[in-house]
Amino acid sequence: MRDDHKHITQAELLLALDDELSPRRSAEVQNHLDACDMCRAAMGELKNAAGDFDKAYRDNANAPLHSAASSRAALQAKMAEMRTNRSRFAAWRAFISGSSLPTWTYALGLVVLAVLGYGLLRAPTPTGMPGVSDVRQDPIIPDAHLTPGVVRSVSAIDVCRPGAGEETRPPASVQKAVFHEYGMDGAQAQGYEVDHLITPALGGSDDIRNLWPESYSSTWNAHVKDELEDRLRNMVCGGQLDLTTAQRDIARNWVSAYKKYFHTDRPLSHNSDFVEDDKPPKG
């Protein structure tokens, strides 16, 4: 038991000043201070000394060398670079660790790839020039390793606000990076939309792992996916579907999601203006 009539030590007065005492002891100290002029004066001296030092410390600091905006921009650029590098690393790690095949199959696969690659390099293209095909087949469904889908930390309430999550075109440098990672450097950019796998309207992010080159001309094209995105958002905002399920379904396989939510095996007729028959691979 403490003796309430004993004066409070300076060490404990400082703890009280800094709100570091337990609530019970803090109340006891306060009761004592209310009744004791000496301890109240000691507390005042500590408070002045500490306050004056804090002010001197803050006043004497050097001004920042750079503006907050330029320092922030530098940090954001470095994080974006780390994020891109990390996604490449993670994709490879997931690929290697996700497979249960024995090691020799990788070696065999490499040999087969080498033979195929040699054959492709040797084979004449339609223009008679040696080399591989310029453009890979249109990725109807994005590559799961390159584009697993990434979401922002948002709720259904957030995405259902008017004007929330409006889709914006990624910067040209990002679009170029997306084409490059899909091996489509030679593709005609106007034939594709660098699209969000999980649309921002459903909380999708602008991370490159949520972007892929989506064809405008295949049967299951960018316009058809837009219809699905609208449908899912309406269902989420109408309380018929939870946001996580919508995000998961569209990320897992958006064509299957379209079939599921529109109850059809083909894109609906009102999309037919955009739809052409499946085309053979370009190149």
Binding site: S205, R209, T244
Partner: peptide, 13 residues
């Protein structure tokens, strides 16, 4: 697996 990992809080968040 990748989707599940990304859903709670993506690097952008």
């Amino acid at each position: 697996g990748a989707i599940d990992a990304a859903l709670p809080l993506g690097p952008e968040a």
